[in-house]
Amino acid sequence: MSVDTATVKKVASLARIAISDADAERLAPELNNILGWIEQLGEVDTSSVEPMTAVIPNKLRLREDVVTEGNQRDAVLQNAPQGEHGFFTVPKVVE
């Protein structure tokens, strides 16, 4: 699989990272190089192998249905780049 600049731009857009045309030009061969190297996994026969689900055998615990957190609006908003009246704010979204 080969990654061209259009693909790089598409992936960057999915990842919400603004890149210039020059960035895309630079990244395409770089990513190709890495992806080409990764593709050596194709050599491995995994036809009868299950994908790993948990690295160390362990069971998902379920917690009790109890309210333990809340009423901390100031703490939640403390690091916000922009907020007012107890809300985070973002550029107006047109839905």
Binding site: L41, G42, V44, T46, V49, P51, M52
Partner: peptide, 10 residues
Amino acid sequence: KAQKVRTLIA
């Protein structure tokens, strides 16, 4: 594929 190879490595 990677998760399968990961199983093999483990």
